[in-house]
């Protein structure tokens, strides 16, 4: 066992720095957060109160609904575009791919500003609707604007995931299905979408988790949008209600982490979110 234990020791040593930083600055603080979440007036029942208190419950439900809507919309848009780009070769395709994936990793605040550029008071959509109908459409500073921002944020990453997965699909499966007489729609439903399922699950989970937990976009658009991260922020800074903010954060973290873990188990693929 000499060589083995030498390897073990070496590996432990190499893992140690990351482990220490991670434990000291993530695990311990998260534990602390949990404790503080239970330090409010009602103790650990404070966690249950979140689900009973209409204000927090409303916030939680609307955040879940927003995240779900974002996920569905993003998957629909990205799958359509991603499949099209993988299955067709035409001049300008590379440029189109570059355009679709450029905003990857734009931070939430900037995306909030992009939404303002589109649907804000001086936005392009407002200009267009005013020219067409005489009425200026402005929805940036509402739930609809936030929805648009989250879709904007998630499309690049999702398109990439779906394209990577679609490129790996075995074209012979599709050829086999067609040789058996399947129409294009049937091929899509029976061969292509099932083949993309792991990617859809993975990308969908990331979408959901980011829409649940993102903060920058909502912050840029308006402080009054009633989503969980904004509620946490207000509780913490304006009300100085640290126990509630901690409990809400902990619940939020648990929900997003569970969504990703669930998707990973279901898809067998590796899933990671981005802020």
């Amino acid at each position: 066992m000499r060589a083995r234990s030498r390897d073990d020791f070496r590996h432990l040593l190499l893992l140690l720095p990351a482990g220490i930083v991670f434990a000291a600055f993530f695990l311990v603080p998260l534990g602390q957060l949990f404790l503080i979440g239970g330090s409010g007036k009602s103790g650990y029942a404070g966690y249950a109160d979140i689900l009973v208190h209409p204000k927090y419950l409303r916030s939680l439900v609307s955040t879940l609904a927003l995240a779900a809507a974002t996920t569905v919309a993003t998957l629909l848009l990205s799958t359509t575009a991603g499949l099209f780009l993988v299955r067709n070769a035409f001049p300008g395709r590379a440029l189109l791919v570059a355009m679709l994936t450029l905003p990857l990793a734009f931070p939430g605040v900037v995306i909030g500003f992009m939404v303002i550029m589109l649907a804000g008071r001086q936005g392009l959509i407002g200009d267009v609707t005013q020219a067409l109908t005489g009425e200026k459409l402005v929805f940036a500073y509402s739930m609809a604007g936030l929805f648009m921002g989250y879709v904007y944020f998630s499309v690049p990453r999702t398109v990439l995931t779906i394209m990577a997965s679609a490129e790996k699909l075995d074209p012979r499966l599709e050829e086999a299905a067609r040789s058996l007489g399947a129409s294009r729609l049937r091929v899509l439903a029976d061969v292509i979408l099932p083949g993309l399922k792991p990617a859809l699950l993975a990308a969908g989970a990331i979408c959901f988790a980011t829409a649940m937990g993102a903060f920058g976009t909502a912050f840029t658009l308006a402080t009054r949008i009633d989503v969980l991260p904004m509620t946490i922020y207000t509780e913490f800074t304006l009300q100085a209600n640290i126990a509630v903010a901690a409990a809400l954060s902990f619940v939020l973290g648990a929900v997003t982490w569970a969504a990703l873990a669930l998707a990973r188990t279901a898809s067998g693929a590796t899933v990671a979110a981005a802020g």
């Binding site: 991670f22 998260l30 937990g213 946490i232 640290i242 973290g253």
Partner: peptide, 24 residues
């Protein structure tokens, strides 16, 4: 360990930041 190490991505930054503030 791999699963643990990627957790900070799954947990919203807001929660992590709050956790850091209440601890340190």
């Amino acid at each position: 360990i791999e699963e643990l190490l990627v957790m900070p991505v799954a947990v919203p930054g807001l929660a992590t930041a709050l956790a850091l503030i209440v601890t340190y």
